[in-house]
């Protein structure tokens, strides 16, 4: 069987999405049989783009001029482009102060020096290229990543998840941290698919998978207000991973 040619690239991020792939220790040898990870600078040399790709998985957001060129080049060469992880899908942690004066933020770290002055406010991939599929999460779930790769091997893209973290949390019969413990749990507004990983250990959802489609923000804000969380607190928490929340 012909191996699928796949490119894996990282932009502005922590490499956690690429590491999630390398963390599939049991599956990695089989994966390397099915796929040729041709361009994968984190785990293969040299970093040389060549020919066309069946799929490219891109981690991270865009915040430097050359990243845009790299992304467009990958897009041109690939049949499918998959946004891997919350930074690629929504902007992620790096974008949590988007909307504020970038130069001021830069100077607070580097001072008057011009270092990194060419960098700009982090953008998710869809602002620059067409994205064919997304695997969200900070980090993404290993199972979701494996499903994506298994699908690609069969020539299909994963079905997008459309339910919130709460759905899986209820299925696991967890105590509701928001209603029972008055914790600022973002489960109602956050895209599911993680089996409610954090609330299952009693830790409130921090929204790391980004917004669920058609989130009922107004209703959630009412519940948060009842529990004593003002709008600014909820907004700051939601924007930890996704600057595009409007409230």
């Amino acid at each position: 069987m012909k191996k699928l040619r796949v490119a894996i690239a990282g932009l502005t991020a922590c490499s956690g999405c690429q590491l999630s792939l390398l963390n599939c220790e049991d599956e990695l040898p089989r994966m390397l049989e099915l796929f040729e990870f041709h361009y994968f600078p984190m785990a293969s040399s040299p970093a040389l783009m060549e020919g066309e790709y069946d799929a490219v998985l891109v981690e991270g957001c865009l915040s430097m001029p050359h990243e845009k060129e790299l992304l467009q080049e990958l897009r041109r060469r690939s049949r499918y482009l998959v946004a891997l992880g919350t930074c690629a899908v929504c902007g992620g942690v790096a974008a949590l102060r988007n909307g504020e004066e970038r130069e001021q933020l830069r100077q607070s770290v580097y001072g008057e020096n011009q270092v990194a002055s060419e960098t700009y406010e982090p953008l998710p991939l869809h602002r620059v290229v067409q994205v064919d599929a997304a695997v969200t999460g900070c980090p993404p779930e290993k199972e979701e990543l494996l499903r994506l790769l298994a699908g690609l091997a069969r020539g299909v893209l994963p079905v997008a998840i459309d339910y919130p973290v709460c759905t899986e949390c209820r299925m696991r019969e967890n105590l509701c941290l928001l209603t029972e413990r008055s914790a600022l749990c973002l489960g109602p507004l956050t895209l599911g698919g993680c089996s409610a990983r954090c609330p299952s250990l009693g830790v409130p959802c921090e929204g790391c998978r980004g917004p669920v489609p058609e989130a009922n923000l107004a209703e959630a804000l009412e519940i948060y207000a009842e529990k004593g969380f003002d709008k600014a607190t909820v907004r700051d928490r939601l924007r930890r991973f996704c600057p595009e929340w409007k409230l």
């Binding site: 922590c14 915040s63 942690v93 102060r97 607070s108 770290v109 900070c138 928490r237």
Partner: peptide, 27 residues
């Protein structure tokens, strides 16, 4: 590209700091 973590953390409550700061690096 710098994500400017030291700037991102300013203005955040103490209990948020470890959750945000750990995103500096996955490994």
């Amino acid at each position: 590209s710098p994500r400017l973590f030291e700037a991102l953390l300013i203005g955040r409550r103490f209990d948020e700091i470890p959750d945000i700061a750990c995103r500096i690096c996955s490994i």
